[in-house]
Amino acid sequence: MPHHHHDEDHEHEHDRGLSYDLPVLARRRMIRLLAGASLVPLVGCSGSGEDTASASSSTSSGAASASSGGSSSSRAECATIPDETAGPYPGDGSNGVNVLKESGVVRSDITAGFGDSAGGTAEGVPLTITLTVVDAASGCGTPKKGAAVYLWHCDRDGNYSLYSEGVTEENYLRGVQETDDKGQVTFKSIFPACYSGRWPHIHFEVYGSLDDATAATSITNTSQLALPKDVCDTVYATDGYSQSVTNLGRLSLETDNIFSDGHDQQLARVTGSVDKGYTATLTVPV
C-alpha cells in the first residue's frame, strides 16, 4: 500500500496547511466512491460513527472487532485501514531524527524516555492502547502475527518529543511492539492533548516484521487513531489539559482535515475512567 508523509494542519512550527494534505484526502474519497459504486457495504472492519462515540463517558464504540469469518463474502467486506499522513513529527527518519534505530525503542510502556533521553516522563491521565493487526485479504479473520507497530503521539501539552520546543531532548511517547499470536500490540501511555487545528489522535505505522521496524524500512501502512469526543471531554476537564478544552471546542471529526472524509475505521473504542485509566482498542486491517 502506498505510503505518504505529509504534514498535519496545525499551528506548530512545521505547519504546511491543509493544501499539503489534499492529495491524501482526494485519493481516499476516490476509493470510497469506487467502493460505493459496487454497492458492497463496508462492514466487519468498520464500526459506529460519532453518534456512538457520544453515548457514554465510560464506553465508546469505534471500529468493530475483526470478523471471525473467512468466506469470500467477508473478504469482500473488509477494507484496509485508511492511509494517513505521518505528520511532521514521525521520528522514523523521514523528517530528521530516527528513533527507530535506537536501542530500547522496542517497549510496551512509552510514558518515559529511554536510552540517552531517559530523563523525562510524560504526565497525564493513563491510557492503554491495544491495536489488533489483521489481514484484510482474509476478511479481517486472520491475525498478523510477527508484524510490528511503531506508535507515537503528543503529550498533555500538545508537544511531540524530539521536535517541539522544550522537549527536543526527550523521546517519550514513542515505541515499537511486535504483534503476538492474536495480532495484538499493547502500549501503556497517557491520554494525548488536543492541540490547535487537529482532532485528538494517535499515530502509528505498521511494518512487516520487527526487523523492518527497527531498521526503519518497508512501512506497509501509516494511519491515525481518533479518540471519541465524550471521553476527551471527560479527560480534558482534569488538571493539566485546560488548553485542550478550548482547542477541542473549535473542532469536530467532520471538520478535521484527516478524519473529515470518514473515521469509522479509525475511531477507537475507549473504556475506563479518569481514576482507573482508560483503554483504547482498534482493529487495524492491513
Results as ranks from 00 to 15, higher is better:
Pro2Gln: 11
His4Gln: 12
His4Pro: 01
Tyr20Arg: 09
Tyr20Glu: 14
Pro23Lys: 07
Met30Gln: 12
Leu39Val: 08
Leu42Met: 11
Ala53Trp: 10
Ser54Asp: 14
Ser61Tyr: 13
Gly62Gln: 13
Gly62Val: 09
Ala64Pro: 01
Ala64Ser: 15
Ser68Trp: 03
Ser72Pro: 04
Asp83Phe: 06
Thr85Ala: 14
Ala86His: 03
Pro88Ala: 15
Tyr89Cys: 15
Pro90Ser: 12
Pro90Lys: 04
Gly93Ala: 13
Val97His: 13
Val99Cys: 05
Lys101Ala: 15
Lys101Phe: 02
Lys101Ser: 15
Glu102Gly: 02
Glu102Pro: 06
Ser103Ile: 01
Gly104Tyr: 06
Gly104Cys: 09
Val106Glu: 12
Val106His: 02
Asp109Ala: 03
Ile110Trp: 02
Ala112Thr: 14
Ala112Val: 03
Phe114Met: 07
Phe114Gly: 06
Asp116Pro: 07
Asp116Arg: 08
Ser117Asp: 13
Ser117Met: 14
Gly119Arg: 05
Gly120Trp: 10
Ala122Asn: 04
Glu123Trp: 00
Thr130Val: 08
Leu131Gln: 08
Val133Arg: 06
Val133Ile: 14
Asp135Phe: 02
Ala136Lys: 10
Ala137Asn: 08
Cys140Glu: 08
Cys140His: 09
Pro143Leu: 09
Ala148Pro: 08
Val149Cys: 03
Leu151Ala: 05
Leu151Gly: 03
Trp152Tyr: 15
Asp155Ile: 09
Arg156Phe: 08
Tyr160Glu: 07
Ser161Gly: 15
Ser161His: 01
Gly166Thr: 00
Glu170Lys: 12
Thr179Gly: 14
Lys182Trp: 05
Gly183Ala: 09
Phe187Lys: 06
Lys188Pro: 01
Ser189Gly: 02
Cys194Arg: 04
Cys194Trp: 00
Tyr195Met: 01
Ser196Gln: 10
Ser196Lys: 14
Gly197Asn: 09
Gly197Thr: 12
Trp199Asp: 03
Trp199Ile: 13
Phe204Asp: 01
Gly208Leu: 02
Ala213Ser: 06
Ala216Val: 05
Ala216Leu: 10
Ser218Lys: 15
Ile219Cys: 06
Ile219Leu: 08
Asn221Asp: 02
Gln224Val: 09
Leu227Thr: 01
Lys229Asn: 10
Val231Thr: 13
Cys232Thr: 04
Asp233Ile: 00
Asp233Asn: 15
Asp233Cys: 05
Val235Leu: 02
Asp239Ser: 15
Asp239Arg: 15
Gly240Arg: 12
Gln243Met: 05
Thr246Gly: 04
Leu253Asn: 02
Thr255Asn: 10
Ile258Tyr: 08
Phe259Ser: 06
His263Asp: 02
Asp264Ile: 00
Gln265Asn: 02
Gln266Ser: 13
Leu267Arg: 02
Thr271Phe: 01
Gly272Met: 07
Lys276Ile: 01
Gly277Tyr: 07
Gly277Met: 02
Tyr278Lys: 05
Thr279Phe: 07
Thr283Phe: 03
Val284Met: 05
